[in-house]
């Protein structure tokens, strides 16, 4: 099979277009419940919490994520498309200066990863990232 550079470029361009078109689906209610439990329904700010996750995960079994929230006392991570949305809660001690951590998580399908930080002043911050979980070439 001959595949020209042009064809490949076209394929790449169309997949990028698809990625940017993808609107974030509404939160699953289970994830909403967990957010409410963590925040007590408080308002969620944005900007002070950074969540790093791949746009596309080659396999949902091992998806690297990083959270970073200077000034946070704790950060909870949720995955709104998993059977159980809770992923982990990081409570930071005084010696964790940067209030950041990385781990590897499981995502059952394409979905939003949501991080909520509780800040030292009692306010809350939110960050989210849509992660596309791909299916291997031969369904494997």
């Amino acid at each position: 099979m001959e595949l020209s550079r042009r064809k490949l470029l076209a394929m790449g361009a169309s997949s990028i277009a698809l990625m940017s078109l993808g609107t974030l689906p509404a939160f699953a209610s289970k994830a909403d419940d967990e957010i409410a439990k963590f925040t007590g329904g408080a308002e969620l700010g944005e900007g002070a919490l950074e969540l790093t996750a791949p746009e596309i995960a080659e396999n949902g079994n091992t998806v690297p994520i990083e959270i970073s929230a200077p000034g946070a006392v704790s950060v909870t991570v949720l995955a709104d498309g998993n059977p159980v949305p809770n992923v982990a809660t990081f409570n930071f001690g005084k010696l964790n200066a940067s209030r950041s951590a990385s781990t590897r998580i499981r995502l059952s399908k394409t979905q939003n990863v949501i991080a909520i930080a509780k800040m030292e002043d009692g306010s809350f911050q939110m960050a989210k990232a849509n992660v596309k979980v791909t299916i291997g070439g031969c369904g494997g």
Binding site: M1, L3, M11, I56, E58, N59, N61, T62, T134, I135, G136, G137, C138, G139, G140
Partner: peptide, 29 residues
């Protein structure tokens, strides 16, 4: 041989090299 580098659904086909085996796969950990 004919199609490495090409997508097969959401995956890149490799040359099927075995120089890294046994290999850890994310799929089955």
């Amino acid at each position: 041989e004919d199609n490495y580098g090409v997508m097969i659904r959401a995956d890149h086909l490799s040359q099927g090299q075995i120089n890294g085996f046994p290999t850890y796969r994310l799929k089955n950990a």
